[in-house]
Computed example of a mutant assay.
Amino acid sequence: MSTQEAVSTEEAADRWEAVRDLPPSAKLVAKVLDYNDTLTQSELADETLLPPRTVRYALNRLEEADVVDSRFSFSDARKRLYSLKI
Results as ranks from 00 to 15, higher is better:
M1P: 03
S2T: 14
S2L: 14
Q4P: 00
Q4H: 10
E5K: 09
A6K: 13
A6M: 08
V7N: 08
V7F: 12
V7T: 14
T9G: 14
T9M: 11
E10F: 08
E10H: 10
A12T: 10
D14P: 05
R15N: 03
W16G: 09
E17V: 13
E17L: 13
A18M: 15
V19Q: 00
R20H: 15
S25H: 08
A26P: 02
A26G: 04
K27H: 11
K27V: 08
L28H: 06
L28Y: 10
L28V: 08
V29G: 01
V29D: 01
V29Q: 01
A30M: 12
A30D: 04
K31M: 03
K31F: 07
V32R: 04
V32K: 01
D34N: 08
Y35K: 01
N36R: 09
N36P: 06
N36H: 14
D37G: 07
D37S: 11
D37I: 12
D37F: 10
Q41D: 09
Q41L: 12
Q41E: 14
S42E: 15
L44E: 01
A45L: 04
A45R: 01
A45M: 02
D46H: 08
E47W: 03
L50T: 02
P51G: 10
P51I: 07
P52M: 11
P52N: 07
P52T: 09
R53K: 10
Y57A: 09
A58W: 01
A58Q: 00
L59W: 00
L59A: 00
R61I: 02
R61L: 13
L62N: 00
E63L: 07
E64N: 03
E64K: 06
A65S: 06
A65L: 05
V67E: 00
V68S: 04
D69I: 06
S70N: 05
R71L: 14
R71M: 14
S73H: 03
F74K: 11
F74P: 06
S75Y: 11
S75Q: 15
S75T: 15
D76N: 09
A77K: 15
R78K: 10
K79L: 02
R80H: 07
Y82R: 07
Y82W: 05
Y82S: 05
S83M: 05
L84M: 10
K85A: 04
I86E: 02
